[in-house]
């Protein structure tokens, strides 16, 4: 087992184990973009660890130097001279080759809302806008129930009856509909933001970060202002999330 003391081999083992953990230990599988990022960090950490001590660094470099210089390793050297460019070439090909599906996109997770919007001719300033239905706490349960009915009639086909973005139509969409159970969606946003998204939908997305891929309809023509606020109350009540409150500065 003396060979296991080789720093070079230890580094290779750590990298292989880390790769296996990231590739097979995370379920559902992590996207390749994340695996590459994590592997880069692990490789950096391994190099830092090995080279933070000069004896260890020399030990790590020894097999590399021997392979490059010693005559008896000519065969290994020749194999590597062929193998490394072939692997790099294959990698370059696999990245550049055209595929039947669209390449992954850098999505902007939360499009920036406008300062104000026009809803059925009424100007609404989004900054500081509160859900008016929350003023009357006694009627909030009634509004939530009404919002639930509106949700089932209009929204659940895509966003799902569990509000997790897994409605009947969801598999047809890329990107999939928003998952309201996720702590990174509605829990991060004030209710005014949701009002804007529901009212204006995909067609009302801002110009930056275009082209947008959103099948979300604009509900402005089909739901009243109160109905939109009601459905907002419902999604927060049903998921147990709380809307972001406006911050004083």
């Amino acid at each position: 087992m003396r060979f296991l003391r080789s720093r070079f081999l230890q580094a290779v083992i750590v990298l292989v184990v880390a790769f296996c953990v990231f590739r097979f230990g995370i379920r559902p599988p992590a996207p390749w973009s994340v695996i590459k990022l994590y592997m880069a960090v692990v490789a950096l950490a391994v190099l830092v660890h090995i080279s933070s001590d000069s004896d260890s660094w020399r030990d790590f470099l020894r097999p590399i130097r021997d392979t490059l210089t010693r005559p008896e390793r000519r065969f290994v050297r020749a194999v590597l001279v062929v193998l490394i460019p072939v692997l790099l070439g294959y990698y370059a090909y696999s990245v550049a080759a055209a595929r039947p599906e669209a390449p992954p996109q850098l999505r902007a997770i939360h499009p920036a809302p406008p300062p104000s919007l026009s809803f059925r001719g009424k100007e609404m300033n989004l900054q500081g806008l509160e859900n008016p239905l929350r003023k009357d706490q006694a009627s909030l349960a009634r509004h939530a129930a009404a919002g639930g009915a509106i949700y089932i009639q209009n929204c659940f086909y895509c966003h799902g009856d569990n509000l997790d973005g897994k409605g009947h139509f969801a598999p047809a969409f890329n990107p999939p509909p928003a998952n309201f159970e996720d702590p990174g969606t509605i829990a991060q946003l004030p209710e005014a933001y949701l009002f804007w998204r529901i009212a204006k939908g995909g067609p009302g997305l801002p110009r930056e970060s275009t082209p947008w891929d959103s099948a979300m309809p604009a509900w402005e023509d089909r739901l009243t202002e109160e109905q939109i606020w009601q459905v907002i109350v419902y999604v927060y009540e049903a998921t147990g999330q709380r809307p972001r409150r406006w911050q004083e500065h």
């Binding site: 599988p29 599906e101 669209a102 992954p104 902007a108 997770i109 897994k166 890329n174 990107p175």
Partner: peptide, 15 residues
Amino acid sequence: SLIVTLEEARAMGGT
């Protein structure tokens, strides 16, 4: 917001 292919998004059950 992860960089994912459609196949990966489906495997994850969303983005």
